[in-house]
Write a protein that binds this DNA or RNA. Structure first.
Length: 827
DNA sequence: AGCACGCCGACT
DNA sequence: GTCGGCGTGCTC
């Protein structure tokens, strides 16, 4: 007798209650086609509607036979879209970040590849002749509607007719045999095709053919001439070259001289020619670093490394030569870079060295482009992937190396479910696939450095710059003293003078301010009213270019008030500075200087980023003003001065990582100065010149900063000594939220008390209104858990059960519960 | 989520 | 009686 096989399937259905693995019977006819990692269609729920599912395991036996086991309907993929190793990684992520199966696997498999099953409805042959007198009004309406369209999407019919209880009527009509329901599978994006023209006449008969054409057929002759030189040409290109229309080509086609073909092309996101990026000889430190890594990997000593290299120490060259080593062993490499530094400059280095062996993945790719890159990786056409966070899931089968550059960057943490850290995921993936992990940074995160010191990663230092230039000197300017001197402007005397000198010497300057817009808040001088976003608990930022107040959380724009909405006075004043104001001010006091600004407000369009950087490169910019965006990766030898307008912005945030972030920013931005022959200079303006994070960055002394910071972390029980679990409850109903947050808190405390004999005082904090109390009209309450390594599994289990329990609780309807394990920020 | 079942009030 | 509204519970 045939023995059944069963597939364990994650069904595409987002609900706390369906977040389970479902078992289906594999019908014998398709047993050879069902494989782990392929998607299938399965009947689900009472209506047996077809849903997509991912096969994550195939088993011969199941512990118990649930009474009504259903069968797989259809296999979608020819080959698995996800490897067993990546499935394992996904299951690990689900547990680690308390996410749902479906969320995890949607993250790992590329977006846009998902097939949608769409229900269609049509009328039957029988219906055309059948007597319809027995139908009620609503059913008649449906039939009439379908008579026009013959068939249509079920959802469209429902939306157009808006009949109540429509399902019952549809079922009745189906039973009578008047209509039929069927499914169509939408295969998502297809491959890209482009029209090509092929010459099918003999090359040496070209003149003969030209003679045979009418003398009036100037364009056709031109086309033939072009085709004399090339056999294949893109239709668009040919039309452009010959300056002709499609009809010219068509007439040549009808004469049988050419063929028009649809050829599958890859949408290549690398559009321009990229010059080769030459291999350079390594400095002593680079060589030591490279050799240590290669040696350790081959001996199997350790496979995780942290390169702590100062800005300009040439980490990229080490990465490149490591990848080269991997290539020689036929192994694949993944390079992760922060989203904002995924600029052409970064890409050029990898593509310039390895050419078409490189695929690029980042958020600005269209769905089609992303799918093409994904397919190239999957099919083994490329060996290297350079990309942002999600590139950690690149579907390689022979992974040898994952490199994470600028390891401390918070863009490696996802803000959406699963709220994963690409660093932790990369580490896990390396363990699973026996690959090596290399992290690199000039300012490693405290957590990573701590782990390196503990021996979890091997620490490699690169303390000097490649071209032996000195680190830039940093001058700290106390802005309180400037104020005492009577200088109320944005620039201190020292910075003003330095910019002036730099302009005179034809050197470039970068001015950094981590805040966009013009004024950060506007307020009434009479009553103190501050304009806040109506949807969020955030003061609105004034933007000069289109004269609006913008909320930087929800994007809402309003016209600035002329009189105070509270007291009616006209004393509305604009406070705080943003990059736009700096730009305006600089243009005013240095009218002859060429000034450019770079922040999210003017780089959203494709290519705008590149344009600004090119202008800087070509010397068409004297002063570049920008936010975080300009803090990393930029390498312009003529930039000798960096001005940090206000280092305090990041320092004063109510977040335990504020000092760390400030140190990182100052170090990174400073690193932009003096990359050429002339020593760089940094002028740092602050109201807190004695702060340890400012002082340590002045000395370029990471270790000094680390030693200070780690003591504070220990004292206050912050990471790396604990893991933080941040629970945010959100709702539009403020009163209900407050109540429910308390209830959630007490349930949590109760459960914790049952599991731990004694609950530490600072294990669980809250519930407090979140630092940003309202976003997009959603009120937010926060509960924070600081737990030690040995506690975390139990705490997560408790939380998971509690959340599922509460999601089924009527009281928690319309309450969103978001859990973030080790968030990058607790604001 | 989405679908069916089942209870209960309004109305022919 | 019975139509339709809505709350409840389950999905291999």
């Amino acid at each position: 007798m045939h023995k059944n096989k069963y597939a364990l399937i994650v069904v595409d259905n987002t609900s706390a209650n369906t977040d389970k693995v479902f078992t289906y019977v594999i019908p014998e006819e398709i047993i050879n086609y069902v494989e782990v990692g392929k998607r299938v269609l399965v009947p689900f729920g009472k209506g047996n509607r077809l849903l997509e599912g991912l096969v994550i395991e195939i088993v011969d036996d199941i512990d118990f036979i649930p009474n009504k086991l259903k069968s797989i309907k259809k296999v979608i993929d020819d080959t698995p879209i996800i490897s067993k190793k990546l499935i394992e990684l996904g299951l690990w992520m689900k547990d680690k970040y308390l996410a749902q199966y479906i969320e995890v696997f949607k993250t790992i498999t590329p977006t846009g590849i998902s097939n949608k099953v769409i229900k269609y409805i049509k009328i039957t042959e029988k219906c055309k002749y059948a007597y319809k007198g027995s139908l009620d009004e609503k059913q008649k309406k449906i039939i009439e509607y379908l008579f026009e369209l013959k068939e249509c999407e079920l959802s469209k019919l429902k939306a157009d007719l808006r009949i109540k209880n429509i399902n019952i009527h549809i079922k009745a009509l189906e039973d009578k045999g008047l209509i039929e329901l069927f499914d169509k599978i939408n295969t998502g994006i297809g491959k890209k095709y482009e029209k090509f023209v092929k010459r099918i006449f003999d090359k040496d008969k070209t003149t003969e053919i030209i003679d045979s054409l009418s003398k009036n057929a100037v364009k056709q002759i031109e086309v033939i001439k072009i085709l004399n030189d090339v056999e294949y040409i893109k239709l668009k290109e040919l039309m452009l070259k010959a300056n002709c229309s499609y009809s010219t080509i068509k007439s040549l086609y009808s004469k049988g001289l050419i063929e028009i073909l649809d050829i599958n092309v890859d949408r290549s996101p690398i559009k321009e020619y990229i010059p080769p990026y030459k291999k350079v000889s390594l400095t002593e430190y680079q060589k030591l670093c490279l050799d240590t890594i290669i040696n350790d990997i081959s001996k199997g000593n350790i496979n995780k490394f942290l390169i702590h290299g100062v800005t300009g120490s040439g980490k990229t060259e080490v990465y490149l030569q490591l990848i080269e080593k991997m290539l020689s062993q036929d192994k694949d490499s993944i390079v992760l870079v922060p989203e904002i530094s995924l600029t052409p400059q970064t890409v050029e280095r990898f593509v310039g060295r390895f050419g078409n062996k490189v695929a690029i993945l980042h958020s600005r790719l269209s769905i089609g482009e992303r799918y093409d890159e994904w397919r190239k990786i999957k099919e083994g056409k490329v060996k290297i992937v350079v990309g942002a966070r999600s590139a950690v899931f690149a579907p390689f089968n022979n992974l040898g190396l994952i490199i994470i550059d600028e390891e401390h960057e918070n863009s490696y943490k996802s803000s959406m479910n699963p709220k994963y850290s690409a660093i932790e995921v990369a580490e896990k993936r390396c363990d699973l696939e026996n690959a090596a992990l290399v992290l690199g940074s000039a300012t490693p995160s405290i957590e990573t450095y701590y782990r390196a010191k503990n021996g979890d990663l091997k620490l490699l230092e690169m303390p000097t710059r490649v071209n032996k230039t000195k680190m830039p000197s940093i001058e700290i300017v106390d802005m309180k003293k400037e104020l005492e001197k009577g200088n109320k402007s944005i620039l201190s005397e020292a910075l003003f003078k330095a910019i002036k000198d730099n302009l005179h010497n034809k050197k470039q300057t970068i001015l950094f301010l981590n805040r966009r817009g013009f004024s950060t808040f506007i307020s009434c001088r009479k009553c103190g009213y501050v304009v806040k976003c109506s949807e969020c608990d955030i003061s609105m930022t004034y933007h000069l270019d289109n004269n609006v107040l913008k909320c930087h959380y929800c994007g809402l724009s309003v016209k600035p008030p002329i009189t105070c909405p509270e007291c009616g006075s006209r004393y509305i004043k604009y406070f705080g500075i943003g990059t736009q104001k700096v730009e305006e001010y600089i243009k005013k006091i240095f009218p002859s200087a060429k000034v450019a600004r770079m922040d999210v407000d003017n780089t959203t369009k494709k290519g705008s980023h590149e344009r600004i950087l090119n202008d800087v490169k070509n010397g068409e910019v004297d002063i570049l003003i920008g936010t975080q965006m300009i803090s990393k990766g930029l390498d312009f030898p003529n930039v000798t001065l960096v001005g940090i307008i206000a280092a305090d912005i990041s320092l004063n945030l109510p977040d335990f990582r504020a000092s760390e972030r400030t140190f990182q920013l100052v170090t990174q931005v400073s690193g932009r100065a003096g990359r050429g022959d002339v020593e760089g200079k940094v002028i740092l303006q602050t109201y807190e010149p004695e702060h340890y994070s400012i002082l340590a960055s002045k000395e370029h002394n990471y270790k000094k900063f680390y030693d200070m910071e780690i003591k504070i972390r220990k004292e206050f029980n912050y990471p790396p000594y604990t893991s933080i679990i941040n629970i945010v409850l959100g709702s539009k109903d403020e009163i209900k939220l407050k109540e429910v947050s308390k209830e959630f808190y007490f349930c949590l405390v109760n459960a914790l008390e049952r599991s731990f004999r004694k609950v530490r005082d600072d294990l669980i904090l809250g519930p407090n209104p979140a630092p940003i109390y309202k976003i997009r009209n959603n009120y937010r309450y926060q509960i924070m858990i600081k737990c030690r390594d040995e506690e975390i599994q139990i705490v997560k289990k408790i939380l998971k059960d509690l959340v599922i329990n509460k999601k089924n609780d009527k009281k928690f309807r319309n309450i969103k519960i978001s859990i973030d394990i080790n968030p990058t920020s607790i604001i």
